[in-house]
Amino acid sequence: MAKEVIEKIREFNRFYTAVIGVTNNHILQSDYSLTEVRVMYEAYYSPGITARQLTGILQVDEGYLSRLIAKLVKHKIVLKKQSKEDKRIYALELSEKGKQLFSELNRRSSEAIATLIEHLTTEERLELVRLQNGIKNLLTKK
């Protein structure tokens, strides 16, 4: 693979992570990391999701994820409910506090993206989405 191609992809990655603000340890002026917010996202949209399922979705180490979930449980953001069928499995969902927190973070995220693209025309916004879909399609191509 051409060294220049790899360097250009890495350059874009550095640019994009800085633009969307994931290079600091806290997302959207909150006390939470990107991975913690992703756990909240998954628990919000898939109540009952398990840690094992999250490990696959987020592609993170099980031990790290376990500590992260424990922190969110301790802060009463995530609830763990033991499975009746298999006592080793816990379903995760957001508490009321977690739902309120996630809704606020989700709102801030949408506002940040709106601000990021406000200078673009409608056609340019549609082109941006088309290009992003193209990147996604290429990187998930088998």
Rank of each mutant, 00 (worst) to 15 (best):
residue 86 D to P: 02
residue 38 R to F: 08
residue 53 Q to V: 09
residue 90 Y to W: 11
residue 56 G to E: 14
residue 41 Y to W: 07
residue 127 E to G: 02
residue 71 K to E: 11
residue 46 S to Y: 08
residue 59 Q to I: 12
residue 111 E to T: 07
residue 93 E to Q: 15
residue 94 L to M: 00
residue 13 N to E: 13
residue 29 Q to E: 15
residue 29 Q to P: 00
residue 14 R to I: 12
residue 33 S to L: 05
residue 116 L to Y: 02
residue 116 L to V: 07
residue 131 L to A: 04
residue 82 Q to Y: 07
residue 50 T to Q: 07
residue 61 D to K: 08
residue 126 L to W: 06
residue 60 V to R: 15
residue 79 L to I: 13
residue 86 D to H: 13
residue 14 R to F: 13
residue 30 S to D: 07
residue 47 P to Q: 06
residue 15 F to R: 14
residue 47 P to D: 04
residue 64 Y to H: 12
residue 95 S to Q: 10
residue 14 R to C: 09
residue 101 L to V: 01
residue 30 S to L: 08
residue 22 V to Y: 13
residue 7 E to I: 07
residue 63 G to D: 09
residue 142 K to H: 13
residue 94 L to F: 03
residue 79 L to V: 13
residue 122 T to Q: 12
residue 70 A to G: 06
residue 13 N to L: 15
residue 52 R to Y: 09
residue 129 V to Y: 05
residue 45 Y to E: 05
residue 84 K to R: 05
residue 139 L to A: 09
residue 80 K to W: 08
residue 89 I to E: 03
residue 48 G to K: 13
residue 70 A to M: 12
residue 50 T to Y: 06
residue 6 I to C: 05
residue 84 K to T: 04
residue 78 V to T: 05
residue 62 E to S: 08
residue 43 A to V: 08
residue 70 A to D: 15
residue 61 D to N: 14
residue 46 S to G: 08
residue 9 I to N: 04
residue 94 L to C: 00
residue 104 E to M: 11
residue 55 T to G: 01
residue 99 K to L: 06
residue 112 A to I: 01
residue 29 Q to C: 11
residue 6 I to T: 12
residue 122 T to W: 06
residue 89 I to Q: 05
residue 65 L to S: 02
residue 6 I to K: 10
residue 92 L to S: 00
residue 41 Y to I: 02
residue 73 V to I: 08
residue 98 G to I: 00
residue 64 Y to A: 11
residue 95 S to P: 09
residue 86 D to M: 10
residue 33 S to F: 06
residue 63 G to W: 04
residue 58 L to M: 15
residue 134 G to W: 03
residue 90 Y to E: 09
residue 27 I to C: 02
residue 130 R to A: 11
residue 103 S to M: 08
residue 94 L to H: 00
residue 136 K to Y: 12
residue 98 G to V: 02
residue 74 K to S: 15
residue 128 L to Q: 00
residue 111 E to K: 03
residue 39 V to S: 01
residue 50 T to R: 06
residue 4 E to C: 05
residue 111 E to C: 03
residue 60 V to F: 07
residue 18 A to P: 06
residue 42 E to T: 09
residue 116 L to T: 13
residue 35 T to N: 10
residue 110 S to L: 10
residue 105 L to E: 02
residue 45 Y to L: 03
residue 13 N to D: 14
residue 62 E to R: 15
residue 25 N to M: 08
residue 3 K to P: 04
residue 113 I to S: 04
residue 134 G to I: 00
residue 4 E to P: 00
residue 120 L to I: 08
residue 112 A to G: 04
residue 104 E to W: 09
residue 122 T to V: 10
residue 106 N to H: 05
residue 10 R to D: 10
residue 78 V to H: 03
residue 6 I to F: 10
residue 104 E to Q: 10
residue 65 L to D: 00
residue 137 N to I: 14
residue 62 E to C: 05
residue 58 L to G: 06
residue 79 L to A: 11
residue 23 T to I: 11
residue 31 D to I: 02
residue 93 E to D: 15
residue 125 R to E: 04
residue 75 H to V: 00
residue 90 Y to H: 15
residue 39 V to Y: 01
residue 109 S to G: 11
residue 132 Q to C: 06
residue 87 K to R: 14
